[in-house]
Design a protein around this nucleic acid. Sequence first.
DNA 1: CTTTTGAGTGTACGCATGTACACCCAAAAA
DNA 2: TTTTTGGGTGTACATGCGTACACTCAAAAG
Lengths: 215, 215
Amino acid sequence: MNTRTLKLVAVDAGGTRQERKQRTRQALLDAALGAQQSLASLSLREVTREVGIVPTAFYRHFASMDELGVELVEEAMRPLRAMLRDARKRPAGDAIRGSVDILVNQVGKHAPHFRFLLRERHGDVPSVRRAIAAELRLLGSELAVDLGRFPGLADWSAEDLRMGADLMVGAMMSIVTALLEVGEHPDDRAQVVSVAEGQLRLIVLGMAAWRSLPA
Amino acid sequence: MNTRTLKLVAVDAGGTRQERKQRTRQALLDAALGAQQSLASLSLREVTREVGIVPTAFYRHFASMDELGVELVEEAMRPLRAMLRDARKRPAGDAIRGSVDILVNQVGKHAPHFRFLLRERHGDVPSVRRAIAAELRLLGSELAVDLGRFPGLADWSAEDLRMGADLMVGAMMSIVTALLEVGEHPDDRAQVVSVAEGQLRLIVLGMAAWRSLPA
DNA sequence: CTTTTGAGTGTACGCATGTACACCCAAAAA
DNA sequence: TTTTTGGGTGTACATGCGTACACTCAAAAG
């Protein structure tokens, strides 16, 4: 009875050789992500079992779990990038409420990816940790550029913008944590959203008041 | 050659029966902490090997690794509590600079504990995750009370204080992450400290400006 | 002094793992 | 049409794991 968990990720026939390979590869990524287990404690055999191929076939696609993990980082960062892009488009009605809204939607749609990032950010696999750290730094620097375009922040130094942007990225990760852990009850969810908006607003207010005490 | 890594945690004779047991128990905790591996990927045998006892003797002290992990959470939270207590004592010279100073010291002194908390906060062991989440919530509520004692914040609602406190706790965790990952070079460390101070200052400024737009 | 207790021992077992190796056989290349 | 390629197969093995079970033997209790 402990044989298979419904083989969610299985892949069948059809298409050219390249396509089939690509599909198996993606199935491996999906299985690793769906396992809801840290890479370090996830076995190659579990993943291949889920996909429906033999263990040794794993190596036709990745040299190791670590390598799969690094690939997964890039895939998991896409929703985060998408968020930033969406927030950028949104002109400025209520920028904060809109941003939190986008965040909530993305987390709802890509929960496993966010879980993966939070888990492996401090996980056992050094290459994956570094990959996530690098991507988050990149995200921070992009957000810093965006912030610099705001009217009130035009004269800020690059370092100060970066500091503010990194604070926001960190706060967003905390918010994502809260969103992933809150139950289904609408009141609880509303509470988390309202706290999230308040926290971002606090940061924005702080930035508005910043220039009174320069370096 | 791959037999032992110097048995850092070993425990020898001397003392009453209770004392010896307590010492072995602590050695197990130390070994698990020092392993720099997530609980889920850390084997009972590795831990007992490091301590210098036979695997089955583990169960004289803990029913499972998970249980050891929960115990470790409490131990790891002590430095964090100590921080808050120290920061409370410090009157108000430059509260932020002082707090960051305390943080840097505690992280330097208890790096493995902080690493453990960051790792297991999103790790594979549910009971440990929950324990850390609960402790951090508690820390947030204590900090909220402390914040409420500040003159400018005396009229804040409990929820708003909590929101600000949680934002600060989250920011501190980001700062701890940065401190644990930065290299030895003094310039790099100074940079991290300066960014940390700036971020906390940003939050404080935000709180000072908050009341202009209430609920 | 005798009995009981309990931390630590040693063996033994079944199980899951990573991966080496030889193989297969349809699609792609020639 | 023939040859080559390469994703997937199946067997096999050594290793490390958790833990069941029967044990020892000082320290603590009587």
